[in-house]
Design a protein around this nucleic acid. Structure first.
Length: 550
RNA sequence: GUCCCCAUAGCUCAAUGGAUAGAGCGCCGACCUUCUAAGUCGGUGAUGGAGGUUCGAUUCCUCCUGGGGACACCA
């Protein structure tokens, strides 16, 4: 909260200053973190931004701006630095007061928006129910679930949804595959179709089929396998602490007539034409279209492609009142992005209301040995197996640390062997240590559990280790806004790592329970409470536990 | 062939166009009579190559090299 308030103060003052100086500040005024060697809380490159057009010396402008900013109530000092930065230090008392409210007030954290808040729908995982969830789904699940939690924490209206492809030819193919496994199990001649699903998991499912399965049709077999696999997806997601507001079935779109309605709607908009007995979506020539060729909606055999129900699904999302659609896809689907964007435009919806986060795939290793993930070849490593091996906390934190764009290497042996060295423990350990301090403080009579801690004199928290911690805590809400801006939880995970890194030196040098006097101890206890609350809150947003003892 | 993503320390990865590029692990050397040594302190060490835009480029643009992925009337 403190940084947002400070930024508003700085921006307002700077604009007044710019008007007086006769220089033009840009619309967006970015605040950046100062480099390690500069003793300040925020750095402003604003004079550099205006120096050129104003034909003024940037350092002179910085000096002038620094004088103006020094007058602000929250500012302890503002000074110019070459080539034209203004470094601003916040008053210690402001940082200390922030300790009473480190975990933000969501209402106050929103940007200055007007009108009703947008309703956001985040769709993720949406894996085909033709096999168990694998690692890539775990990454998508981490990104999506954490993003939804963060958006909600910021007061946004965000929902999570899982789309189930339970219609079409794949069900029959799945049925043929499992039926072959079933017959194999009965020592009868059978062959899984070449393009079918060859994974071992179908053997287990076939063996578990009821007695009447002997007379099942291919499609009946397919539905049986699909529902069983879908149930495993639900179990995996639950074990991964990932929850969805709705599991949406593709078959609903056919049953309700939404698919046909969508096609009729596109026709009415003049976006559709027929060629060679097929029905095409004519987006390639459309203005601003993102796709370079037209795509088939209905094949010449009269059956819809997968594309048409997908469009119907996205139209349904809009019609349910969502203003902003965020889809999270694996990189293997990136080629589909221009097509879907073109479809959204064809529906007459603003292109910017639809956003796809494409996350790169995970390269799985066992030691130096690469493990190829292939759902159809049956050699992939299921998510559930990895979660069992390395734990949910380590898994989610590891995925959350990386930008969606990174191609991350995940070495199963290393993750297992060195699990105690995983960064997540580094963060959790701080939480456990703080909790230990509170237990000791209770035993020593310094602080009764649950009692309110008084706001201390800022001079009580003036040691470098204390001040660095207070300043870091003040950035927590900004980090959540970074996550929203980048649509990724990775700034939060990295922030928690940095916060943990600042706690340990404090712990070494600033005794709490055995402080010089009780007032000093209670001041540090308040700082500890801030650290505890931010870590607990931050880890919770990442779906990671915060143990009180380790 | 076309398109997307990536290339940063020995390894895994950070860094809204900003200053002396940060962490963790590893390695070398110190720290447990004091709230958890799963820790701290010190040392080590990096932007693939060539141009361009900019006051300023890890970041933006072009080309090259290397790696991953996608290019159906498949789902």
């Amino acid at each position: 909260m403190i940084v947002a308030r400070l930024r508003r103060q700085l921006a307002a003052k700077a604009r007044a200053w710019a008007a007086a100086e006769g220089v033009a500040l840009p619309e967006a005024l970015a605040v950046c973190a100062p480099p390690a060697h500069v003793k300040a809380d925020v750095s402003l490159p604003w004079p550099l931004a205006v120096a050129r057009t104003a034909k003024r010396n940037p350092l002179d402008l910085a000096k002038s701006l620094a004088v103006a900013l020094s007058e602000l109530p929250d500012v302890a000092s503002a000074s110019a630095a070459p080539p034209g930065f203004v470094n601003v230090a916040v008053k210690d008392a402001v940082l200390a007061a922030n300790l009473k409210a480190v975990t933000l007030d969501p209402a106050g954290c929103g940007r200055d928006e007007e009108g009703a808040p947008a309703r956001i729908l985040v769709e993720f995982v949406s894996a085909n129910p033709t096999g168990p969830l694998h690692m890539a789904s775990g990454r998508g699940a981490t990104l999506g679930d954490s993003l939804v939690r963060i958006l909600r924490r910021l007061g946004r209206k965000a929902d999570a949804e899982y789309y189930i492809n339970d219609a079409g030819a794949r069900v029959v193919l799945l049925g043929q595959s499992i039926k072959a496994r079933y017959l194999e199990g009965k020592s009868q001649a059978a062959q899984v179709p070449e393009k079918g699903y060859h994974g071992e998991y179908l053997k287990d499912l076939a063996a578990a089929a009821p007695a009447e399965a002997a007379s099942w049709s291919d499609e009946r077999w397919g539905r049986y396998a699909l529902e069983a696999l879908l149930e495993s997806h639900r179990r995996d997601m639950k074990a991964f602490e990932v929850s969805f507001d709705r599991w949406f079935r593709e078959s609903e779109l056919f049953a309700s007539g939404a698919v046909e309605k969508t096609l009729a709607f596109l026709k009415s908009r003049g976006m559709v034409y027929e060629k060679a007995d097929a029905v095409w979506l004519g987006t390639s020539g459309a203005e601003g279209s993102s796709d370079d060729k037209d795509r088939v909606l209905v094949k010449s055999d009269g059956k819809p492609t997968y594309f048409l129900p997908d469009i119907a699904y996205h139209l349904d999302k809009f019609e349910r009142g969502y203003d902003r659609l965020i889809d999270i896809w694996g990189a293997d689907h990136h080629g589909y992005v221009p097509r879907m964007k073109a479809a959204v435009a064809a529906l007459g919806r603003p292109p910017e209301s639809f956003h796809v986060i494409v996350h790169q795939l995970i390269h799985l290793f066992r030691g130096k040995q690469a493990v190829k993930m292939s759902k159809r070849a049956g050699t992939f490593i299921p998510l559930s197996e990895v979660v069992e091996e390395v734990g949910r906390d380590a898994c989610r934190f590891f995925f959350a640390l990386r930008t969606p764009d990174s191609h991350l290497n995940f070495d199963l042996e290393l993750a297992k062997k060195q699990s105690s060295e995983n960064p997540v423990y580094y963060v959790q350990y701080v939480h456990a240590r703080v909790c230990a301090i509170f237990r000791k403080a209770g035993e020593a009579g310094l602080h009764a559990p649950g009692a309110d801690l008084p706001l201390p004199d800022a001079r009580r928290l003036a040691a470098p280790e204390e001040r660095a911690l207070m300043a870091k805590l003040a950035w927590f809400p900004e980090v959540l806004l970074d996550c929203e801006r980048l649509l990724s939880p990775h700034p939060l995970a990295n922030y928690l790592l940095e916060l943990a890194g600042l706690f340990h030196p404090f712990y070494e040098k600033c005794p709490v329970v055995s402080a010089e006097d009780p007032a000093q101890g209670r001041a540090r206890l308040l700082l500890c409470a801030g650290v505890r609350d931010v870590i607990r809150e931050g880890l919770s947003l990442l779906g990671v536990s915060a143990p009180e003892q380790m």
